[in-house]
Design a protein around this nucleic acid. Structure first.
Lengths: 321, 321
DNA sequence: TTGTAAGCGTTATCAT
DNA sequence: ATGATAACGCTTACAA
């Protein structure tokens, strides 16, 4: 049962401030007194109230982590990285799933502020930049997977470049009809990938073909079914993330479309599962765990205006010729 | 900018107690006054400090959710359900990934207590029951996916029965050599599934064949490779969860083992992806989201000694004859 | 070396 | 219908 500092003080026959000193290891405390207090704390199994402490110090050792959907393995992995780094620094993280919903994003941001988090890490959000910054201000905010123009910090990876690499790979192996299955419209990273695809296609004078997706397995699956049933099916597909790419592979297998003979597939993320699909998925690797850890360290070190950029790179496996 | 109730009071030209009344919708407040105050709160975009509230009321409206691994879709979905229900009740949840690590479980439990959560929901943990209860005591604790003998509450689903149903299905279609790929040894649900499998096999006089797994895609994949390369490969496999079943399907596809002709596969969980594998996965359905919601409601209504049991049921798809 | 007392932002109990 | 004011459990000058 959690007792108060007062009861400890009484039992030890000292004042609360002395007890506070031994709790925080600050100021001078006589050896005998310290021992008496420690004993008292033990017998009462005293645990200081982090609420009261938070009220006084304004510090809660808590950060908020806002992301669209933990079920997405990429986000889950970033969250893991952040959480691991946080715990190592004595912080705890409050996890919020916005579900790609603008309203919920705003709501959560308020909840977090009310909870007096010391900072917010936002991953793959949809809100307009100024809305977001306005909403969390004056808390430090680190953006992951999104470049922001102001003096905020962010962890970034060049999706446009990654998408170009993916598209170029498909081009380089001779694909002549390359389709792109997108992520949710409001996801900035999805948009960047789309734009990288579009640019690269334009540069090489190819006709783009875009199918809307949603970053989920089922989305890729549906998109692929539609694509393969067309008169002029693609011979290359760049999916905006691995989950959809895996859905595409399943659809292809079901329809008897052979990978990579009939169609080559490139995904994005390099989630665990990508190694093990059949055929194994060629994809653009994002170091998710590291990105999460980096986000926390940016927050922790109170660096503002710091931009860490990671490199997306191609991981070639068997789903491309 | 997070303002205080004082500043709102000043701006509205009233006392803090009146502001407190409109915040909490308690006591009488004149219509005009209320409007002034609401306006003031808006212009300052005031958000009450839940810390200060917590200090006064002793309530933090926060619960801890301890689970082994958010990357596991089943856990992710339970977490989603819990979080949704929590938010609807004005609670926020602190999410902790134990990574199936006993040490981390204990550590997190302490962190949560220090953070003054009002209760803890524990999913699929490994710790011994009394350790766990001792560690969170005196906080209310709801166990998900685990039956506990004491007066604690739990949400449960009969894994042994589910596993029996799965095994029986395989038996009923004439499989003669049925293997089981297990979950992590220390997972109680994995153990129950194993025991259901073992029992059913024994009842029907069949020789069991158990391969260790880990609930992850790669685990199923590896196990299947080993299994299919044996002299006497199985004609039926019951995987302790869907992620592994999907890994098994991939391995089968790669090795040219035909499903369900050469081998029938049954999974466990019925995650989203199960519908879309190729062939679609026959599996035991667990209502993950509902289980998460139920867990929160058990906590919320402060019911102790309440046991909610869900039913596992077979969802037949194409991976079984 | 130790104690006293003033907050931290709320809520709740009295008055008014 | 509204306002003072005393808690809540702790930290932290400032005194002693």
């Amino acid at each position: 049962m959690s007792n108060t500092i007062k009861e400890v003080a009484k039992l030890a026959g000292v004042s609360v401030s002395t007890v506070s000193r031994v709790i925080n290891n600050s100021g001078y405390v006589g050896e005998k007194t310290r021992k008496k207090i420690v004993d008292a704390m033990d017998t009462l199994s005293f645990e200081p109230s982090s609420i009261a402490r938070g009220l006084v110090s304004g510090k809660t050792s808590t950060i908020g982590l806002l992301l669209p959907d933990v079920s997405n393995p990429f986000f889950a992995e970033v969250a893991r990285g952040t959480e691991e780094a946080a715990i190592e620094s004595g912080f705890t993280v409050i996890l919020c799933n916005s579900n790609w919903d603008l309203e919920r994003e705003r709501m959560y941001l308020n909840v977090l502020k009310g909870r007096a988090v010391e900072g917010v890490i936002v991953i793959g959000n949809r809100s307009a930049e100024r809305d977001l910054i306005g909403a969390v201000s004056p808390l430090p905010c680190v953006f992951v997977d999104r470049k922001v123009s102001s003096d905020q910090s962010y962890i970034w990876i060049d999706h446009e470049k990654g998408a170009s690499i993916a598209t170029e790979k498909l081009l380089s192996i001779g694909c002549e009809h390359i389709a792109h299955v997108t992520g949710p419209r409001k996801s900035t990273s999805a948009r960047s990938r789309l734009s990288g695809y579009l640019k690269t296609m334009k540069q090489s004078g190819m006709e783009p073909s875009v199918v809307p997706g949603n970053f989920r397995f089922a989305g890729g699956y549906e998109a692929a079914k539609a694509l393969f049933l067309k008169d002029n099916p693609p011979d290359g597909i760049f999916a905006a993330n691995d989950m959809m790419a895996i859905g595409i592979i399943q659809a292809a297998n079901e329809l008897g479309v052979s990978i990579p003979n009939d169609v080559s597939i490139v995904g994005y993320d390099d989630i665990d599962m990508a190694k093990c699909t059949s055929p194994a998925l060629t994809t653009i690797r994002q170091p998710a765990n590291e990105m999460g850890r980096a986000a926390f360290s940016l927050f922790k070190n109170r660096v503002s205006e710091m931009k860490i950029e990671f490199d997306a790179r191609l991981v070639e496996r068997k789903s491309t010729k």
